[in-house]
Computed example of a mutant assay.
Amino acid sequence: MAIPKLVLACILLFAIVLQQVNSQGLKIDFYKKTCPSLESVVYATTARYISRVPSFAAALLRMHFHDCFVRGCDGSVLISSTSNNTAEKDSIPNQSLRGFQVIDAVKSAVERQCPGQVSCADILALVARDAVSLINGPSWPVPLGRRDGRVSNATEALFGLPPPFFNATQLIAAFASKNLTVKDLVVLSGSHTIGFSHCSTITTRLYNFTGVGDSDPSMDPNYVAALKRKCSPTDRTSIIQMDPGSSQSFDVNYYATVQKRRGLFQADAALLTNNETNAYVTKHSTSSATSSFFKDFAASMVKMGNIQVLTGSAGEIRRICSAIN
């Protein structure tokens, strides 16, 4: 009897995950004995929030990315500032992050079931996965066993996160520094298929790209005109869809948007300037490529979730996610 393609793909992904994480000290069944109900508790709590506010899915996925790119996936983005330290959370690139209440609620629910066992870093990784799957996006096995970091520094976030104005060379270098490939870059950029941004992030691109009151010539002029109708030069608060018309649906429409020169950020447009990323954008710009993108996204998310993880006796298991013990 032939094995269905989707089942085979899941089996292969699981095998790849096991191979990738063995050297990191993470395991799919890390909490099998200490917190067997973990994933069901995380899913149920996350679902309550996503059902009321679906846009949290994009926010929580972004939070996981911002955590992993600074000091690795150690939950340091969740730590609040103190009188003696300005934490990552308050760095300029992170000031628009939201959904921390979801993580806090999940942590509280997990603590009631398994006190002192599960790290905030693991909870964030699970919540990001579940949030995406709850809006009909892909799912993936999440290897567990991360420990929480004790350091959170705003300056590190300011310089460690790739900004939306990076070009292809800069983006490739930023991802390579985290052992992520060019393919991972373009696949994870696909997360821009959901969510919103603020007008302030594209003001320069619309109104003063080279300092002479011009717009970015890489953008479709009709798209520029549409964005200008929504965003004045001084608008700091209005929000705009990252994937117009499809911002709450996890799909391949983002790649079609980029191909039409309607990517919201310079970093989106940069995907057309590199042969490898351009080829992926072209290949995945139709709905027939959805299953391929979902498989690739799942694999890249597993890789991202392994960045510089703390395991064993390193770090700690925080009692609350917003403060070190």
Rank of each mutant, 00 (worst) to 15 (best):
A2D: 14
P4R: 13
K5S: 15
C10V: 08
V21D: 13
N22Y: 12
Q24D: 09
Y31D: 05
T34H: 10
T34N: 12
C35N: 08
C35A: 09
T45Y: 11
A47K: 15
I50S: 07
I50L: 11
I50E: 06
S55K: 05
F56G: 03
A57W: 04
L61E: 15
S76A: 11
T82A: 01
A87C: 07
E88C: 15
P93V: 10
Q95Y: 06
S96D: 13
K107Q: 11
A109H: 12
A109M: 03
Q113M: 08
C114S: 01
C114M: 05
A125K: 00
L126F: 12
V127S: 09
S133F: 07
L134H: 08
W140P: 01
P143C: 01
L144M: 10
G145V: 00
D148H: 02
G149E: 01
R150W: 07
N153E: 12
E156Y: 14
F159T: 14
L161A: 01
P162S: 08
P162T: 06
F166Q: 09
T169H: 12
A173R: 13
A174K: 08
F175S: 14
N179Q: 05
T181D: 02
V187F: 06
V187P: 04
V187D: 08
L188V: 02
G190H: 03
H198K: 13
T203S: 07
T203D: 04
T203C: 02
T204V: 05
T204I: 03
Y207M: 06
N208C: 09
N208E: 10
F209E: 04
T210H: 10
V212Q: 15
D214P: 13
A226G: 02
L227F: 05
R229D: 11
R229Q: 14
D235Y: 06
T237Q: 14
T237D: 09
M242D: 11
D243Q: 07
P244S: 08
D251P: 00
A267Y: 01
E276Q: 11
T277D: 08
Y280R: 08
K283Q: 01
S287E: 07
A289D: 01
S291D: 08
F297T: 06
M301F: 05
V302P: 05
K303C: 12
G305V: 06
N306D: 05
N306S: 13
T311S: 15
G312R: 11
G312K: 13
S313C: 09
E316R: 08
R319Y: 13
C321R: 11
N325S: 15
